[in-house]
Design a protein around this nucleic acid. Structure first.
Length: 749
DNA sequence: TCCATCCGGGG
DNA sequence: GTGTACGGATGGA
């Protein structure tokens, strides 16, 4: 069996249920258990005495068995009398995966239930999306669902109700029928994975509420939907089918590596699939389309499930890779934060080492830990302005390699050996040099596997199945490796050790500042540096050769496996402040950090002009950049800029009545309603600021009827803020760009 | 600057 | 579900 999911059932003796491709297997032979570190007294009946390692000392503990996981919370208080309870908060399915050595998407040999050799890399995926009205309220399930779309391999279906027949759309009698039709369509397609975008938070709860109201049973292949609260999130489980909310996974594991700060389906799809895939849609009135243009609604809905499907094809392999490394079900891994991924990997490793897992901190304990702040990475104040060329050097996995190199771990800190004190962090604590710590050992296994995979990838042909499998796994290993940073300082961590976390960060600062000093002694100008990177320049004619020679010298001195690498030689860079800079590659493409305003509440004018100014400045054409802005200022004053460039978009988040602040988009929403337009929460309000002396809110007019605009507003609040930082970094004067020296502008107006 | 509250994704 | 939990941005005191 290729393992897809695991659950359990039974009322007396628990039975584990293994879900595989097209088959189900029940295992009644595994019993829940916990450990007790006994105070005194004698071994309870049916319990076993076993030896385990608690951090770094051997202890004798009692292993107490149960018939069913439900017994554990029931007997908790009573058992506490006997001693400290351990591993009494490990969910049963996770316990089973670990103890049986099972991995998701790997073979399970039956009936013994032991890991086999085969492995799957992809599953049959179905994406879905629902459209709803908002007329009876925006709470989950308040208004009607009017359309459901599905998209799979060679499969697409759009269902609606109470409409004239329309091309490509299955039209049924009513909403209840539509839900039935949806369930039937899912069952007919037979997915192994069902995906949505924010579906745990929206589509599934919405479907549940509507189904309840309409008295339609909502079961897929006979499995009812189970709703579980996980913090602020909902998790929706459908036994026998892997339900995944792509949004949650992207937010938890991928967002920190993404350019976009917004995680809407469109923004995420644009980044992963490319802009051209994300054309249809935009601002659409669902209610209007429902009443007038059902084909438009059809295209919109299908586009969203199609994007979700295409996104799933890109992203799910990474999730599968992570789940396999962490050793938990795809369902669970899909909803873990990076800290939890690390923790479940550690718990699995601890089992292999016969180590007792530390308990999770109680709420108060976690709160106290959260209050403890510690100094993070070093960020150098940049030498403001334009520099060329720029060499970007960075440490390969800085924090993981520091943890390995210095053996940083809760079980090695301040050990009793005299000789280990030379391995002392800048914070004063030291780490054992005799015995490898639990955390470094775990990180090293991941790090070494990744290095081996990267070496292997070089021998494989790029783009082949084998190469892709290796590439995906190394990506997953990298994500996990990066997640270890911060784990020991994470307030909910079981292996929490603030001094170990502090030491890691302090060593990081120590190494990067040492590199900067060395670089300066080698004749480089250190323009900027942040955490694990340094950006160097010099006027040597052999710049790249010099940099490589410098790296070689540095690497000879760094402890294994730390290494400083050349990320690239850039044509030029403009540096504004810490975390805000732009680099230009040799091929002319840009890397922009902290500057770009990709937010929609900035006009097209502001976004485009910032990009153009960065481009010109990096090409050394500062004069041209100034002229470009001056030209735009002039055009704005002469009212020659097309209105479309000046449209500002803000989404209405709640009902108009419930806004206390009369923000511009709120006032515009009122005006739109007065014009007979339907304005509901979720509508993106497009407006332009018109001339006049009243407040901005009063002067904001709907983009659809805007005839004129306030030139000064756009100059002062859109254009100049977007570009001024860059000119200021170059030592320029904003006044010059305003062209107001002689009070000319007042004169012209 | 500190503290409390809001908000994310979806419609 | 062997339960009860996130973190950054924003705005007012």
């Amino acid at each position: 069996m290729i393992l897809l999911d695991v659950g359990y059932r039974g009322s007396g003796d628990v039975k584990v249920v293994l879900y595989g491709r097209g088959e189900v297997f029940e295992d009644g032979s595994f019993r829940p258990y916990i450990y007790i570190v006994p105070r005194d007294g004698k071994l309870p009946e049916g319990a076993e005495e076993v030896e385990r390692i608690d951090l770094n000392r051997k202890v004798k503990v009692w292993k107490v068995f149960f018939r069913h996981p439900k017994e554990v919370p029931r007997k908790r208080e009573e058992l506490k009398e006997l001693g400290e309870l351990r591993e009494a908060d490990i969910p049963f399915v996770r316990r089973y995966m670990i103890d049986k050595g099972l991995l998701p998407l790997h073979e399970v040999v039956l009936p013994e239930v032991k890991p086999g050799k085969k492995e799957a890399h992809e599953l049959r995926v179905l994406a879905f999306d629902i459209e709803t009205l908002t007329d009876e309220g925006t709470g989950v399930g308040d208004s009607k669902i009017i359309m459901i779309s599905l998209f799979g391999e060679g499969f697409e279906k759009v269902i609606t109700w109470g409409q004239e027949a329309a091309k490509g759309v299955t039209v049924v009698e009513n909403e209840a029928e539509m839900i039935r039709e949806f369930v039937a369509a899912v069952e007919a397609y037979g997915p192994e994975v069902i995906v949505g975008y924010n579906s745990d938070g929206f589509d599934w709860p919405y479907l549940r509420r509507r189904a309840e109201k309409l008295k339609v049973p909502l079961k897929i292949n006979g499995s009812p939907l189970q709703f579980v609260r996980k913090g602020r999130d909902n998790a929706v489980r459908i036994e026998g089918l892997v339900n995944i909310d792509l949004y949650i996974f992207i937010r938890n594991m991928l967002s920190q590596y993404m350019q976009s700060e917004s995680l809407t389906l469109n923004a995420v799809a644009e980044e992963f699939l490319g802009k051209e895939k994300v054309q249809i849609g935009g601002a659409m009135g669902i209610e209007e389309a429902w009443h007038g243009d059902i084909e438009k609604l059809y295209r919109y809905s299908l586009q969203d499930s199609k994007l979700t499907y295409l996104l799933a094809l890109e992203i799910l392999p990474i999730l599968y890779g992570l789940a396999k490394i962490v050793g938990q079900t795809i369902f669970d891994a899909a909803r873990m934060s990076s800290g939890q991924m690390v923790e479940w990997l550690l718990i699995r490793k601890a089992f292999g080492e016969k180590m007792l897992v530390p308990n999770r901190p109680k709420y108060e304990e976690a709160a106290e830990r959260r209050a403890v702040r510690f100094e993070g990475a070093f960020v150098k104040e940049p030498i403001k302005g334009l520099h060329k060329p720029i060499a970007v050097c960075d440490f390969r996995s800085l924090y993981p390699t520091i943890i390995i190199a210095h053996n940083i771990s809760p079980d090695t800190i301040n050990c009793g050996h005299r000789g280990c004190r030379k391995n002392r962090a800048p914070t004063g604590v030291w780490f054992c040099t005799d015995k490898e710590g639990f955390i470094p050992k775990t990180i090293r296994s991941i790090f070494e596997e990744r290095m081996a995979l990267k070496a292997r990838m070089k021998e494989l042909k790029k783009g082949t199945v084998e190469w892709k499998v290796a590439y995906t796994r190394q990506t997953a290993l990298k994500l996990l490796l990066n997640s270890f940073y911060g784990y020991m300082g994470y307030s909910n961590a079981r292996w929490y050790d603030i001094e170990a976390a502090r030491a890691t960060a302090a060593w990081g600062r120590d190494y990067i500042t040492r590199i900067m000093r060395d670089a300066a002694m080698h004749g480089f100008t250190v323009v900027y540096g942040d955490t694990d990177s340094v950006m160097l320049t010099s006027d040597s004619s052999e710049f790249e050769r010099d940099v490589r020679k410098f790296l070689k010298e540095i690497n000879a001195k760094l402890p294994d496996p730390m290494r400083l690498e050349l990320e690239g030689i850039f044509r030029s860079g403009v540096f504004v402040t810490k975390k805000r800079y732009a680099l230009m590659r040799k091929d002319g493409s840009l890397v922009v950090k902290g500057l770009e305003r990709v937010r929609r509440d900035w006009s097209g004018l502001a976004r485009k002009s910032q990009e153009e100014v960065i481009r010109l400045v990096l090409q050394g054409k500062v004069g041209e950049a100034k002229e470009f802005i001056k030209g735009l200022v002039k055009k704005l004053r002469a009212k020659e800029v097309p209105i479309e460039e000046l449209v500002i978009r803000t989404q209405l988040k709640k009902r108009i009545e419930s806004y206390e602040q009369q923000a511009p988009h709120v006032k515009v929403a009122r005006k739109l309603r007065a014009m007979g337009k339907k304005v509901t929460p979720g509508t993106v309000i497009e407006y332009v600021v018109a001339p006049g002396s009243r407040s901005i809110s009063d002067r904001a007019v709907p983009a659809s009827v805007a005839k004129d605009y306030d030139a000064d507003y756009y100059i002062e609040n859109q254009l100049l803020p977007a570009v001024s930082r860059i000119f200021e970094a170059l030592g320029g004067d904003i006044e010059e760009l305003r062209m107001k020296q002689a009070g000319l502008s007042q004169f012209l107006e």
